[in-house]
Computed example of a mutant assay.
Amino acid sequence: MRVEDGDEFVETLLEWYAENGRHDLPWRDPDASRFEILIAELMLQQTSAEQVTGVYDEFVEQYPTAGAVLAAAETDIGEAIEPLGLRKRTEYFRRASAQLLARHDGRVPDSRSELLDLHGVGEYTAASVLAHAHERDASAVDTNVARVLARAFGSESAEPESPEMWDLSDRLAPSGRCDDFLHALIDFGAAVCTARDPNCESCPFEAACEYETERSTDE
C-alpha cells in the first residue's frame, strides 16, 4: 500500500471495521455522553480496552457527570479504578472535572486548545474526544495507529510523536467519518496488525503492504 492509494486504504479499512470492529465497547454506544467518552479516553491511556471494560460501566453509572466525580471522595474514585493501575488517574478525573465545572459549566469543550487545558489530556486524547464525542474531523496517532500506518505505507518512522505519522493520519482521515476511521485503526491494530506476530494472512492489505513484502523476503 502506498500513500497515493490512501482512498482505497481508508475504504478497505472501513469495510473491515464494519464486519470485524469492536462495536459493543460501551463507550462507543451512540448514547454515551461526551463526559463518558472523555472518561473512557482517560481510562484507555496506557491501558487495554479489555481492562477498561471491566470498570467503565460501573464507574460512569456512579459518576455520570463532572459534578458527581468532584462530589465523591478521592478514595472512592481511586478504589473504582484500581484494577486499571496508574492511580494518578484519580487526580486526572478530579482535576479535569473541577476544570469542566469552573470553565465550561460541566460540559466537555469542543475546541482542541480547551481540551488540552484539561488535566491529563494530551494531543491524542484531545483529538480522540473531538472525533468521538463531538464528531469533528480530527485524526489521532498513538502507538498502535502509528504501527499500522507505518507498516502499510512503508514509513521509516513508527513513532506516535512523529510529525510524519500525524501528517499521514490527517491526510487519510475521511471527512465525516473520522470517528469510525480512528476506531477502525485501533481495532485493526489490536486484531490483525499486532506488534508481535501480526496476522498477515488475514490482512486485506497483504498483497500491497510494505511490511508484509519485507517480512516474506526475510523468511
Rank of each mutant, 00 (worst) to 15 (best):
R107F: 05
F205M: 10
A191F: 07
K88Y: 15
G122Y: 07
A32N: 07
E206F: 12
D57A: 12
V145A: 00
V192P: 10
D142V: 03
A127N: 04
T194G: 00
R94T: 09
L100W: 01
A191R: 12
K88N: 10
R171T: 04
L38I: 11
A32S: 15
D24S: 06
D142R: 07
L100V: 13
L185G: 01
D76T: 15
Q51L: 11
L86R: 11
V192T: 15
G122D: 06
A127I: 11
A102F: 04
Y92S: 00
E61V: 11
L185W: 01
M165C: 04
I81T: 05
E36F: 02
Q45W: 03
E79K: 14
A138G: 11
E79F: 14
Q51K: 09
R87A: 15
V192C: 06
T75S: 13
V121A: 06
I186S: 01
T75N: 11
G67V: 12
A146V: 01
A152N: 04
R151S: 05
A191T: 12
D5M: 02
R215A: 02
D170K: 07
E36G: 13
A126R: 10
C200T: 14
S216R: 15
S157A: 10
D170W: 14
A140D: 03
F9V: 08
R112A: 13
S33V: 15
C200V: 13
L70N: 12
M165A: 14
L115E: 08
I77S: 03
F59S: 00
E4G: 05
A68Q: 12
P26E: 08
D142P: 00
R177L: 06
A191D: 10
L168N: 12
E19W: 04
C200S: 05
D76K: 06
S175G: 09
E219Q: 13
K88L: 13
D105P: 02
H132A: 04
R151T: 03
E214N: 09
A195T: 15
E135S: 05
D110P: 06
E58A: 11
Q62S: 13
A68L: 07
A98R: 10
P160A: 13
D76W: 13
R28F: 01
I186L: 03
R28K: 05
V141F: 00
A195C: 10
V129Q: 02
F35V: 08
G85R: 06
V60Y: 08
A158W: 03
I77T: 05
S139D: 04
L130R: 03
A133L: 05
E214M: 15
M165R: 07
E50I: 05
L172G: 14
M1C: 05
F35N: 13
A126M: 08
G122V: 11
F9P: 00
E91D: 14
E210M: 09
Y92R: 02
D29M: 09
E214S: 11
P198W: 15
F59E: 00
D7G: 08
T194K: 10
A195D: 14
D31G: 14
N199G: 04
G154W: 01
R89D: 12
R151M: 03
L25H: 04
S113I: 10
